[in-house]
Simulated assay, not measured.
Amino acid sequence: MSTVAITTKQYIEEREGCYRIVGKRVSLDSIIYAFLAGRSPESIVQSFPALTLEEVYGAITFYLANRTAIDAYLVEGEQLFETLRQQARESNSLLSQKLYSDRTS
């Protein structure tokens, strides 16, 4: 029997409170939202040419292995985004009104 060296890789790293693909600027959020929307790993790679198919599968595997924690992380991010959006609307109320009125016209 021949021995073959098997390597294990880490695809996700946490930096400054954000999960990213190791060595890339692509967030785990971006890949997981695409995956949850039903996109295939191959189509995700087309949207993120900096990633390999292996990295996308690695990110999805990381998500599936840590689903509860990552789902909570995603919800927390959505709540933070909503809070920041509301603060921006309040601090720029005239601009917000103009944008809203342009959208409804």
Results as ranks from 00 to 15, higher is better:
80 L>H: 03
99 L>H: 03
86 Q>R: 10
89 R>T: 01
87 Q>C: 00
28 L>V: 04
77 G>L: 11
33 Y>M: 12
42 E>R: 15
26 V>Q: 04
92 N>T: 08
25 R>E: 13
44 I>V: 05
60 I>H: 10
81 F>V: 04
47 S>N: 11
91 S>T: 09
36 L>P: 07
101 S>H: 13
48 F>I: 03
101 S>P: 00
40 S>E: 14
36 L>S: 09
21 I>E: 01
74 L>C: 10
53 L>D: 08
28 L>D: 07
72 A>H: 06
19 Y>Q: 09
24 K>S: 14
70 I>F: 01
89 R>F: 03
83 T>G: 00
63 Y>S: 02
97 Q>S: 11
78 E>V: 11
46 Q>W: 11
27 S>H: 11
48 F>G: 06
82 E>V: 05
84 L>M: 03
97 Q>M: 05
74 L>A: 04
63 Y>P: 03
35 F>K: 06
57 Y>D: 13
92 N>L: 08
36 L>I: 13
55 E>G: 02
20 R>W: 11
65 A>C: 08
22 V>D: 07
61 T>I: 11
102 D>N: 06
46 Q>Y: 13
42 E>A: 14
41 P>R: 13
58 G>A: 03
20 R>N: 15
101 S>D: 11
25 R>H: 12
91 S>W: 01
78 E>Q: 15
92 N>C: 07
30 S>R: 10
89 R>N: 04
98 K>T: 15
70 I>C: 02
32 I>P: 01
69 A>R: 09
56 V>W: 01
23 G>V: 06
42 E>C: 13
60 I>N: 09
55 E>C: 07
20 R>Y: 15
93 S>E: 14
104 T>L: 10
69 A>T: 02
50 A>W: 07
58 G>H: 00
54 E>A: 10
76 E>P: 02
35 F>S: 08
77 G>W: 04
61 T>S: 12
34 A>D: 14
43 S>C: 11
34 A>Y: 10
27 S>D: 11
64 L>F: 04
61 T>A: 09
84 L>D: 05
89 R>P: 00
74 L>Q: 10
66 N>S: 06
76 E>C: 05
23 G>K: 07
66 N>D: 01
54 E>W: 01
90 E>Q: 08
94 L>N: 13
86 Q>N: 05
69 A>D: 02
78 E>N: 14
34 A>G: 05
48 F>A: 12
50 A>K: 15
86 Q>S: 04
55 E>Y: 01
64 L>P: 00
104 T>Q: 12
56 V>M: 04
98 K>G: 13
79 Q>L: 15
59 A>W: 00
96 S>I: 00
83 T>P: 00
88 A>C: 02
45 V>S: 04
103 R>E: 07
92 N>W: 04
28 L>E: 02
42 E>P: 06
75 V>W: 08
49 P>K: 04
62 F>G: 02
99 L>Y: 06
79 Q>A: 13
33 Y>I: 11
60 I>L: 06
97 Q>K: 11
53 L>H: 14
35 F>I: 01
50 A>S: 15
53 L>C: 08
62 F>D: 06
100 Y>S: 09
24 K>C: 04
49 P>R: 07
88 A>E: 04
44 I>Y: 06
53 L>W: 12
57 Y>M: 14
68 T>A: 09
38 G>L: 10
39 R>K: 15
88 A>P: 00
65 A>Y: 05
49 P>T: 03
39 R>Q: 15
46 Q>K: 15
47 S>M: 12
101 S>Y: 12
